[in-house]
Design a protein around this nucleic acid. Sequence first.
DNA 1: CGCATGGTTTGATTGTTGTCAAACAGTGCG
DNA 2: CGCACTGTTTGACAACAATCAAACCATGCG
Lengths: 109, 109
Amino acid sequence: MRLLPHPATEDIELTEVLRALSDPVRLEIVARLATRGELTCGSVGEELGVHKSTASHHFKALRDAGLVFTKQEGRLKYMSLRRDDLEARFPGLLASILSATRPDALSHG
Amino acid sequence: MRLLPHPATEDIELTEVLRALSDPVRLEIVARLATRGELTCGSVGEELGVHKSTASHHFKALRDAGLVFTKQEGRLKYMSLRRDDLEARFPGLLASILSATRPDALSHG
DNA sequence: CGCATGGTTTGATTGTTGTCAAACAGTGCG
DNA sequence: CGCACTGTTTGACAACAATCAAACCATGCG
């Protein structure tokens, strides 16, 4: 099992995190990771209707920004949110963004 | 005194807010607005070492995203953070971002 | 080994963005 | 009006990004 490069918690940059989450597809990926724990590249591609190479590209962007952790098991790669690392680095940031992605949690209706 | 177009609070989009803040110059502008209340286009240009047209461009990006409000008085235009609107739309988001950029920014709220 | 499966990389295309400089426009003052 | 001051718009340019398709790489299985 190989390990992919992940930035250390203290090396996570705020602008890169915000930039990574400013894409609708990546924001949706993160929102799903928050509720479903782990996702593979292929499942995201199918569910969001994008090519698998596009999904891979987005996962790399999220990984490089320090948002997700990639764990390989067999032929599959499981991506998960780095919740604790992000909370330690930018307290409250991920929580506020995740709550903002849920329409029912807003003053919308 | 003229009014520039600003999006209504309920029309502020999360991805556009994150995108606006993903640029280091704009993030710095917002951080300074948080501690200093109001800034003009020219002052930002001088302090951050960018051309005035670039500063104007960034202010427009922040205004279009719903982050800042522009008020004209005489020949000057004062930009200020839409703190209350952002708090109503995305609770806790701006606070967590500001604390990530400048931990003392919260004490001025 | 041969093959299927799951992801990655590369190429091409298209669109966006950040920046400066120069021209333009609105405002206030004399 | 003419002028100075502020900010906006336009033009140009380089850099980056999102997407798909196809080729490629790696892993596990028979």
